[in-house]
C-alpha cells in the first residue's frame, strides 16, 4: 500500500476505535462526578475533582457484595454443570456407538433452533409445581442437564478432532471409556473447555431474564437484577448508576482481556456473542 493510503487507513482505524470507546469513557467520567457536574449543561469529560465517594455510596445503596455472591454462586455452578455434563454427553456423541445416536444428535441440533419463548411459560409452571420459584434451582439445574445444547455441540466438534490413535492405545491397555474420557479427552480439550467456561460465565453473569422470572426476594437477587431494580427506582442517580455498572462490568472486562483468544476462537465457530 502506498504511504498516504496507509496513513489514511490507520487514521480511520483509530478514530473509529476512539468512537467505540466513548461510552466507556463517559461511563467512567460520570461515575466520578458530583451531582451538579453530572447535570451540567455543557459537556465535561474530566470531573473537577474525582468523587470516589460515589463508589462507596454505590455499595451502600445496593447490597453489591451479597448480589455478587449470589451471581458468583449461580455462575460457578452453571459453568461446572456445562463442563461436567456437557463433556460427558459430548463424549457419548463423539466417541461411543449407541443405537439412535445420530438421530438423537439431529434432535440436539434441532433444539438449538427452538426460541426460548416457546418453553418459558411451561417451564415456569413446572418449576412452580416443584416449588423452585424464588430459589436458585431454575437457574442452575438446567445447566447440569445440558440446558445449552450449543456447548455440547462445541465440545463434540472438538472431541472429533482428537486422533483415534490416542484413545485406541489406551483401550488396548485395558482402559475403559470413563478413564479415557477423564484422562485423555478432558486434558486434551482444555481450549474447548475454556471457551465453554468463558461463554457460560458471560451468559450467566449478565443473565437478566432468568432471574427476573424466577427470583422474587431481594436477598436472592443477582447483580443484573439488582442493578435493574435500582435503576428503575432511582432514575436520576446517574453517577451512582454508572459506578454500579462499572463494578458489574469489571469482572467481565478482566476475563475478556485475559482470555481474548478463547473469545475469538469461540466466536469464529458460534457466530454470536455470549
Amino acid at each position: 500500500m502506498p504511504r498516504a493510503q496507509r496513513a489514511l487507513h490507520a487514521a480511520a482505524v483509530w478514530s473509529l476505535a476512539a468512537v467505540l470507546l466513548i461510552p466507556f469513557a463517559w461511563m467512567l467520567s460520570s461515575s466520578l462526578k458530583p451531582p451538579d457536574e453530572v447535570f451540567a449543561d455543557s459537556m465535561r469529560w474530566i470531573p473537577t475533582e474525582p468523587r470516589w465517594d460515589n463508589y462507596r455510596k454505590a455499595f451502600e445503596e445496593m447490597p453489591i457484595l451479597l448480589y455478587t455472591r449470589n451471581t458468583m454462586l449461580i455462575t460457578t455452578l452453571c459453568i461446572l454443570g456445562y463442563l461436567v455434563s456437557g463433556s460427558l454427553v459430548a463424549y457419548s456423541f463423539a466417541r461411543l456407538r449407541w443405537k439412535g445416536r445420530d438421530a438423537w444428535f439431529m434432535v440436539l441440533l434441532a433444539t438449538m433452533m427452538l426460541p426460548p419463548q416457546v418453553t418459558i411459560v411451561p417451564l415456569f409452571v413446572i418449576f412452580r409445581k416443584l416449588h423452585w420459584i424464588d430459589t436458585f434451582m431454575p437457574l442452575i439445574v438446567p445447566a447440569w442437564l445440558s440446558g445449552w445444547p450449543f456447548f455440547i455441540f462445541l465440545l463434540r466438534q472438538f472431541f472429533l478432532t482428537i486422533p483415534h490413535e490416542l484413545t485406541e492405545a489406551a483401550r488396548v491397555d485395558g482402559a475403559g471409556h470413563f478413564t479415557i474420557y477423564l484422562r485423555i479427552m478432558l486434558p486434551l480439550s482444555r481450549p474447548a473447555l475454556a471457551t465453554v467456561a468463558i461463554f457460560a460465565f458471560l451468559l450467566h453473569w449478565n443473565d437478566f431474564f432468568g432471574p427476573l422470572i424466577f427470583l422474587a426476594q431481594e436477598s436472592r437477587f443477582t447483580l443484573a437484577l439488582g442493578l435493574m431494580t435500582y435503576a428503575a427506582k432511582h432514575q436520576s442517580e446517574w453517577s451512582i448508576l454508572m459506578a454500579m455498572s462499572i463494578v458489574m462490568l469489571l469482572p467481565t472486562l478482566a476475563v475478556f482481556l485475559f482470555c481474548q483468544r478463547y473469545f475469538v476462537e469461540g466466536i469464529a465457530t458460534t457466530g454470536s456473542k455470549g
Binding site: 455434563s85 460427558l88 454427553v89 463424549y91 457419548s92 456423541f93 461411543l96 456407538r97 449407541w98 443405537k99 445416536r101 438423537w104 440436539l108 447440569w144 442437564l145 445440558s146 445444547p149 455440547i152 471409556h177 474420557y181
Partner: peptide, 11 residues
Amino acid sequence: NRLGYLFAAPW
C-alpha cells in the same frame, strides 16, 4: 450401547 445412553443421560 448402555454406556452411550449413560453418558448422554444428562442431556
